[in-house]
Design a protein around this nucleic acid. Structure first.
Lengths: 209, 209
DNA sequence: CATGCCCGATCGATCGATCGATCGGGAACG
DNA sequence: CGTTCCCGATCGATCGATCGATCGGGCATG
């Protein structure tokens, strides 16, 4: 079961992902969490506070894991980032969709904090791509555009992947690694250590709770 | 200026893109269109009717243009689809974002119609990719995953591209073509006819109004 | 030309419902 | 007794939508 606060958070992630922030009412939230709408406010601040805390936790987890990724060569670092990103977006589908889609629902002040976290994460991608370009490992001609294209492509996993579908999770990660490196051009695909990434994801997840 | 109905539609596209469907009130819509909220209902049905009609028009335009694309080889067809998609998502940014992001705001019944249109469009992509794989032009190992990845990557353009930024529109289209064919693996990049695609987009747009 | 009628366009006022949020108090537990 | 957990009742605001009424310009009739 978990604590009541965790139940509230799970309910919020489910409903925000399904109906959107503005499409989810306080009473919907309360019903899903098994509480009255009044009791809800014992466990959270405003509805926006709840959204921000979900985003902060999710992005912090991603940044932490991203910074702990092994891999010396640009190819290995990009491969690791792709696998980390695809894995989290496939496993924590609803949560990542809330993070990616509900930025616009935030007040400008709250948005700034979340965007800063997201920028920190995306900088990891940019430096790996730039390094690969400057050492000649990648041949893509617009590294900034490549970063944006890669991130959109990998985030999309959260919008369609079916965990109980025909594609096993490790295979998904490998396919995306191949496509990403093909997109960047001229790179050999380094041996994949999906299991290692998975352990990293689980470790960071556990240490956050 | 255009007709009042066109002004309402433009206002809706702007606000739905900026704040989302549920985040946009009838009074916001009316104010942006320069009408009273009551007059709004003289030009539209319900708020959902307005959203559906925006989506239907936008997707119909995309399907029409996609079916008229020239190109015999799989490479040429994929290149054409990428350029068509990127161009429309860069030029009609707000409109395409509404189409891509607000599906979940639709009632199941209305959603079905719109999804059918979208599926028809995506089938064009799938057959081009599948053909390329079966004749050995592409080496990607999961054609269905590749389609999903490509579409997400190209749609993402609507979320970040700045029309008055440092990247000219034709260059953007060419870069995406290169990345897409790199992602599919083993394909030479066919000569790009971005101007031709642009003419096609404008033609279809004009014939719809 | 003048008159009377019609109708698209528009609005202020208001509907019932729901929104996010708050309050005071009861129940359970130490 | 105090603290934690919880809820029914309720707040003012806003939601999407509808109402009756008004205005003005075509248009047919005499």
């Amino acid at each position: 079961m978990g604590t009541t606060e965790q139940r509230v958070r799970r309910a919020a992630i489910e409903l925000f992902a399904e109906r959107g922030f503005h499409g989810t009412g306080i009473r919907d939230l309360a019903e899903r969490a098994g509480l009255s709408s009044a009791t809800l406010y014992h466990y959270m601040g405003t509805k926006e506070d709840l959204l921000v805390s979900i985003m902060r936790e999710s992005l912090t987890r991603l940044v932490t894991a991203g910074e702990r990724l092994p891999g010396a060569s640009p190819q290995e670092r990009v491969a690791g980032l792709v696998q980390l990103h695809v894995l989290t977006h496939a496993v924590q589908q609803e949560e990542t969709r809330v993070v990616d889609d509900e930025m616009r629902s935030l007040t400008p002040a709250r948005r700034a904090e979340v965007v800063a976290l997201r920028d920190r994460y995306e900088a990891l991608w940019q430096s790996a791509i730039d390094d690969g370009c400057s050492v000649g490992a990648f041949t893509v001609s617009a590294p900034r555009v490549a970063r944006l294209a890669l991130l959109e492509m990998c985030s999309g996993v959260a919008r369609w992947y079916a965990p109980d579908g025909p594609i096993p999770l490790p295979e998904l990660a490998v396919r995306y690694t191949e496509m990403a490196l093909g997109l960047l051009g001229g790179a050999e695909v380094p041996p994949a250590d999906v299991a290692g990434i998975r352990v990293l994801v689980d470790t960071v997840w556990a240490s956050q709770n």
